[in-house]
């Protein structure tokens, strides 16, 4: 299955983490030999995770019917290019790049949506950058289509994609110096 293949490959770039895999994720995963269990701590601790609110594991299969995507991967900002290369090798195509402004956490989340034409497999790659220095590398060299998506994300959030060929406003006026999707933006 494509999902299992890509999950194994993406585990290499997913955020490394100390916390164990949540019980939910273990239940959702069919194969007993999952990569994150190997990376995480002993599965015996998993029941504890049920009681207290644990942060989500960096790579997890999601309930497709409820969420609309199959695999949810969190990576460090400098790993997005590697993740893109892995997905490109498996013939995924880029559907969209977008941001979410988490004002309270003082962070931007950058979300990459991938899909595959041969077999339905929606992969979401996310990364978080601090709001004060919103910088991460561009994936437009891997996926040429990301060029416009990243430019649009720069328009709306002011997130800088390092190495991007042209970050001038695409949808906003050419002299725009504001970023309308910021939660603290007032016109």
């Amino acid at each position: 299955m494509l999902l299992d293949t890509i999950k194994k490959e993406l585990a290499a770039v997913a955020l490394s983490t100390e916390e164990e895999v949540s019980a939910e994720d273990l239940a959702a995963t069919e194969t007993p030999e999952t990569v994150e269990r190997a990376e995480g701590e002993a599965p015996a601790e998993a029941p504890e995770g049920k009681e207290e609110e644990k942060p989500r594991p960096p790579i997890m299969e999601t309930d497709y019917r409820a969420k609309g995507f199959h695999l949810d991967v969190q990576v460090a900002p400098d790993k997005v290019v590697e993740a893109a290369k892995i997905l490109y090798k498996e013939n995924f195509f880029i559907e969209a790049v977008t941001g979410v402004d988490w004002l309270k956490e003082e962070e931007f989340e950058v979300v990459y949506d991938y899909n595959n034409m041969a077999e339905l497999c929606r992969v979401v790659v996310r990364t978080r950058v601090p709001r004060s220095t919103p910088q991460l590398p561009t994936i437009s060299e891997v996926y040429a289509g990301a060029n416009w998506h990243e430019r649009e994300t720069h328009d709306f959030f002011g997130i800088e994609f390092m190495g991007h060929p042209d970050l001038s406003p695409l949808l906003l006026p050419e002299d725009a110096d504001f970023h309308p999707l910021l939660k603290d933006y007032t016109p």
Binding site: F92, F93, I94, A96, M117, Y143, A144, G145
Partner: peptide, 20 residues
């Protein structure tokens, strides 16, 4: 290859051989 890199869908992808 261009369809994959740019994420083109719909009749554009189907005109380039993707049964999608």
């Amino acid at each position: 290859d261009m369809v994959t890199r740019y994420g083109a869908t719909g009749p554009v992808a189907r005109g380039s051989g993707f049964n999608f």
